[in-house]
Amino acid sequence: MKIMFMTLRDRVERFTDFSNLSKDWEYVFAGYEKDTAKLLEMGGDADAILADAITPVPKELIEAMPNLKIIHSEGVGYEGINLAAADEKHIYVCNNRGANKTAVAEQAVMLMLMVLRHAVTGHNRVLEGRQIEAKASWSMEGISELGSMHVGIIGMGDIGIETAKLLNAFGCRVSYNKRYPLSPSQEKEYNVTYMSADDILKNCDIVSLHIPSNKETFEYMNEERFAMMKKGSILINTARGEVVKNEALLEALKSGQIAAAGLDVLAPEPVKEDNIVVKAMKNDGELAEKIVLAPHIGGLTVQTFDKIYGTIWSNFKKVCAGETPVNIVNHP
């Protein structure tokens, strides 16, 4: 079996014990190369591809690889993989559903706390010698505890459920929305109540996004939905940057429609200095204090990658043996 890695080589080597794999297997490390011709030159005869969750695996590449049997996302997302082309060639596309649920849930709660406690601004105030000024200001303005918040989770999959579990420990009231509501027993177990997405936006103090990135959810948080949000509420996004319209987010923050945002993700990735949100924050200090950014590291824990690579190598072994892998996301 020949495997082409379209991701970071150091990460593959760190979380893989090659001594446990077949000595006959071959490996091609393509990094983040996106040129189809170059990829085919390196690994056009590969049986498997492992791709970073945001790396494109286009139709042209899939159609030109005669031996390809499985494409595996290194993460949960797989929006860069052309599923239709894989279906046509009966190629499995798999992900690592649920592997990062604890890590991303922790990131979501951390962003909520950072926003509520003015963590980044407070850090900067201390470095500037303005500790007492910041303390006095926020003691008068008031800092809310997370447990006093009504949190709405939009997208109640593995990560949404894990986030709800963590929020319960803080004493939050938690509402959720998903296409198919949980059963009454599940709602009782997770201590959550179902609400329509519109009602979550209108009534919750914090809205946490946990929806996939696809055609239906592109710029889900647009001008109309930001206008629905409770005045002075907070947006948290640990899903994908593409589900939030950047221009609408900035307008909602500048107008005071929402008080703040905690973002582990921004679109497009990779995020550059000319990103509209980054530029706006650099040019407007008041706006910058309303946003907490993280570099899309919600799921990048050691524990997550241990689970991820366990699934990846198990699936490659199954396909090599003619068996069906787990976590198939297409219709091969």
Rank of each mutant, 00 (worst) to 15 (best):
D52Q: 08
A260L: 05
Q131F: 12
G129S: 15
L127V: 09
G31A: 08
R130K: 15
Y190L: 02
S139P: 00
V12F: 12
C204M: 09
V115R: 02
I276Y: 05
A260Q: 12
V278L: 05
A267Q: 07
I308W: 02
E242C: 00
T102A: 07
G310W: 00
W138F: 11
A288L: 00
A64E: 04
K245V: 03
F15C: 10
M110L: 10
F226D: 06
V319E: 04
F218P: 00
D158K: 02
M149G: 01
G322E: 11
V292W: 05
K23H: 15
L300P: 02
E162I: 00
K245N: 15
K230P: 07
W313P: 06
Y176S: 08
K215Q: 13
A288G: 02
G160C: 02
N283I: 06
C172Q: 05
A64F: 08
K69L: 01
I3Y: 07
H296I: 06
L253E: 12
V126H: 01
F18H: 06
L235F: 11
R125S: 13
D87N: 15
D198Y: 13
E162N: 05
D158G: 00
Y78P: 12
P58Y: 11
N222K: 02
E145W: 11
T163A: 01
V277K: 02
S139V: 03
L39H: 11
M4H: 09
L249S: 13
M1N: 07
W138H: 04
F316V: 05
V277C: 05
L287E: 11
A108R: 00
